[in-house]
Nucleic acid binder design. Sequence first.
DNA 1: GTCTATACCCCGATAGAC
DNA 2: GTCTATCGGGGTATAGAC
Lengths: 203, 203
Amino acid sequence: MKTKQQEPRQDPEATPLGTRERIVRTTSRLMQRQGYQGTGVKQIAREAEATLGSVYHFFPGGKQELGTAAVRHGDEEFADILEKMLAAEDSPATAILVLTKVLGEGLRDSDWLDGCPVTSTVVGTAGDSPGIQEAAAEAFARWRALVADALRRAGFGERDAAELAYTVISALEGAEMAAQVARSTEPLEVVGRHLARLIESYR
Amino acid sequence: MKTKQQEPRQDPEATPLGTRERIVRTTSRLMQRQGYQGTGVKQIAREAEATLGSVYHFFPGGKQELGTAAVRHGDEEFADILEKMLAAEDSPATAILVLTKVLGEGLRDSDWLDGCPVTSTVVGTAGDSPGIQEAAAEAFARWRALVADALRRAGFGERDAAELAYTVISALEGAEMAAQVARSTEPLEVVGRHLARLIESYR
DNA sequence: GTCTATACCCCGATAGAC
DNA sequence: GTCTATCGGGGTATAGAC
């Protein structure tokens, strides 16, 4: 059952993705735009260029398992960005400010279609699908931990760091939603400035 | 076409709602929990105790028109709460703090099912349904205006008031989402304290 | 691992009697 | 305004050959 997978061969252009990976990325992208309920398994198979049989081979748990994998994928994606930003700037406040700028540009470049993939996927799955809900909770907790760590490294107290991280992630999440709906980068920019100010006020 | 509707007769128990109003409230409540795509027109008819024919009689635009009406309903609902809170407290910062407490209690009382009705409904309708998107944008703008007005009345400058209102609404939105996913009132409470502090820092 | 075919159900929307 | 019946299509998921 766990026979060694063929290693992805080296390719100067772009590594050809395995079927499973292609399905995960396609699911994440589709649910980011259409939500969990608005995305069909057939559509995922079609756009991932896989057959329905392959999809259910890799994800026997069906649509719920696909949703969970999509949330985890979005989790890692944003965690990478966040980690790099926090490492590149010497002040966490500046890093957040830069991040809001980047998020705004990404949103505009997608014609305001690509909001937070985790939020889009988890909304509307409240009662059912505890797996998706849990994966989303883990994503938010991880992002918060990254921010809190950076604040601690910058000399903030344990408690201040943890609490500020809560507000940073929540406000970013809300500003992304506001920006998407308003089709404007202004909410993200304003929130970025206010978060930087709030952080500095604890120095 | 505009013959006068029968006035709702006086009832000490509870005013019996007209069919149209019953449909709107049911739609708002269902989409708040299940999202736009996860809510069926047949389900709306069933739970509103109306027939499918009645639903399409009042909303010839179909599901999209129902979604738009639901967003407008959620808009007014929250605007009323916000307005009362801001009027009851003499400081806007205190009002926001109380509001986060109230929102957290409401969320917990619904077993973390009832988040922001506007957000839940608009997510996943990005490309299609410009009507829903627009109604959501109007809701956010209206809520922001209420906060900005209160800040101006409390003596804040024009620009500070407008910008703070952006951050207050965005952060509340994000904190509500974070609280729902984490099944905890903590994000709302922390964000409430930070927003109050941020506001006071402009005094 | 990949593919086709299909079972079974509910979707949004409409027609037309009452 | 309310009701029932129905259309055409797509939903999730499974079976079983290759």
